[in-house]
Design a protein around this nucleic acid. Sequence first.
RNA 1: GCGGAUGUGGUGAAAUUGGUAUACACGCCAGACUUAGGAUCUGGUGCCGCAAGGCGUGGAGGUUCAAGUCCUCUCAUCCGCACCA
Length: 816
Amino acid sequence: MEYNSQTIEKKWQNYWAENDSFEPTEDFTKDKKYILSMFPFPSGRLHMGHVRNYSISDAIARYHRQLGKNVLHPIGFDSFGMPAENAAIKNNANPKTWTYDNIEYMKGEFKSLGFSFSKDREFATSDELYTKFEQGFIIDMFEKGLLYRKKGLLNWCPHDQTVLANEQVVDGCCWRCDTPIVKKDMNQYYFKITEYGDELLADLKKLEGGWPKQVLTMQENWIGKSNGLEFDLYFDEDSKAKLDSKFESFDVFTTRPDTVYGVSYTALAPEHKIVTYMIENNLLSDEVITEIKKMKATSSIDRQKEKSGVSLDLNVIHPLTGKRIPVWIANFVLMDYGSGAVMAVPAHDDRDWDFAKKYDLPINSVIKPFDGELDESKAFTEVGELFNSEEFNGMNSKKSQYNIIKYFEEKNIGKKTTNYKLKDWGVSRQRYWGAPIPFVHCDDCGLVMEKKENLPIALPEDVEITGEGNPLDNHPTWKHCSCPNCGKDAIRETDTMDTFVESSWYFLRFCASPENWEKEAFSKEQINYWMGVDQYIGGIEHAILHLLYARFFTKVFRDLGYIDFDEPFDNLLTQGMVLKDGAKMSKSKGNTVDPDAIIAKYGADTARLFILFAAPPTQELEWNDSAVEGSYKFIKRFFDRSSNIVKTDSIPTIEHSSLTKDEKFARKKVYEALKRANDVYEERFTFNTMIAGVMEAMNALNTQSNSDVWSEGYWILSSIMEPVIPHTCWEISDEYFSLNNLAPQKILEEVFVEDSITLGVSINGKRRTEIEISPDETKENIIAMAKDKAQKWIGDKEIVKEIVVPKKLVNIVIKG
RNA sequence: GCGGAUGUGGUGAAAUUGGUAUACACGCCAGACUUAGGAUCUGGUGCCGCAAGGCGUGGAGGUUCAAGUCCUCUCAUCCGCACCA
């Protein structure tokens, strides 16, 4: 047979499609495996990152199918989102048409790569059936108080004309279009993810071992829990009067209560409500107001460049010392962390130091090193001994924190508090191509939920996408409806949901049997059987956003009574990026490799083999054209040499002791490859080493000509390679083994028994020579043989020690 | 600054428990077969050295009979977070 990737691959792809080879069964008594790749956005064409992602999950899924497990390996499309709208603007097309055309094309690509996805369970998140249940969940969450609407200061992308979640702001810029974001005051819907902050943090422990450490740390940092002291600072009488007696005090948060006696000024965020009041009531000079406005208008990146501030000409009273402390506005104080106000201790905080130096504010030291002098030319931020701190003098600063917090609590002037960096998740977007938020604004009833029987609230299709404003808001009729409560004319909410909402529960939808898709999102029985996801595979770029949101939804669904577990993904593998010429493949750099072109030239198996062979999955993968060629040659050789096989329906029985040395060696290599394959598919996922083992076995088979050894070798090797290069292996298996070998393989220990063993001989740990011994040789004889062989290096020097490591080496330690 | 990772031939990378460093592949070199080869097959290929031998896993120490692997320090690169009080 001549290897022809095109005909072989087409043949088996059609065979699998006709036989529904990859559909899971509804027999819940069977052992299950849920193998999931992160689903793609239907951008139009797969890129190599996708191919890598699905080659990994497909290999794992096919392995478990061989073992007879009930395998769920689904795929779908994360099909809402801005690129569809942007493409629509650019090509004057309809986002829906654009999206579903792309989906059709990409389905064809999946097929041509031979991925063993369940076809029955494919869906797109923009399908109305998906929207229907999602809107139902949104209503549930609203009823539970987990979704709320409020006016707030939001990240606004002026280019995309929409609000972004904190998680979607990267370096102060929009994560999609890289435009610097600005803050805007708007009505928004929020998920109360902060209510789950503690649990999201604590449950990271449950994921240890199953998730990469890096991802766990990133989530931990993102949640950003910190403990400290919160207390009120009261204005003095003059200041109170100045504020028209509207404000008595403001509160501050600190993680360094030990420095409290060193407070020498306080600072408010420019957006602080006291500041706003002062501006609105003309309590500040024009220059100061101009300065504040400038600060507020500055983007967060620019704000970080230099500290600046302005005095409010107000004073507060230190709660412990009674001293007067000036109040400033500082650009480095963030309104959305803590209370938007800080106590400043320039002596022991670098930021406070910089600010105090710039504006010539007092600096009061209260901590000194345990030994040595305090260097007063910079902030001392380490642990030390307290002084100038009344009754706490002499204490270790770290240890005093507890005492000082207790002191505040006893005097009832402050309390222990926990703060999080994590913010509630703003989910409304002023865009067309997303799931409509199922609410209605009624003049009489206010904000009203849509009735569940009216779901889905679908998008209108006759829409004009111009890139300006919200197309739903501009639509002539869509938003006009009647109030679900009182029946009066009302206005439909025109905001749509963040697309991360869809990807927060799609893995649950895959568990639902398609025949029930119309009537329910999923059933508990199905969920309990399939979840959690045994292996989740995707890019590290989702370490925070998607993975945190999906964890949040899982916990919410649990509390709504829909599911019975806490965490969705038992094991997570974050694949490395695909690089070309040392840089990430991207259209803008022009260094992409088109999967379709590779398939056309070499076939899907070559692409899959190269991708799994060139690097371990968690590492970056450097694309290399000649190495791709090498993978192609291996497959061709593998195919050509199958002519050495004798047709058989079962694995040949071989009398091992009657074989020649080369034949024995070949069998050993084959079974070594099998051992390694099991380990790789179950645990390690370092497919590169498994493939190397198969290549070694092939090289060993080629040194002998026993047709039984060849047949046995191929029986095993084509079984363990099937998850990687399925088309080639099915073809070989069908031709010679009636497809019987695509099943679990038994390891024969007898092939590992050696007639003789080579031991390395080292002198003082340095390898010098080797000896050949029989497996049952005594230690004495081994040492004697080693000494004899290594006489040249030993000479007449004194032997201090002799070490024999069984089956490995002999080490002789000599003196001098 | 905080956190996470990585560093091994010309290149991608192996070495699962401290036990023969560089498996497997790419590239390169040589040979065979060929009208030809960018096909196929065979062999060679860490560095220095004519050789004997020496040196070799970013660098410096340490533990050990034995270190890529463990410990301490250090350098470099990459990634994430970042005026988070």
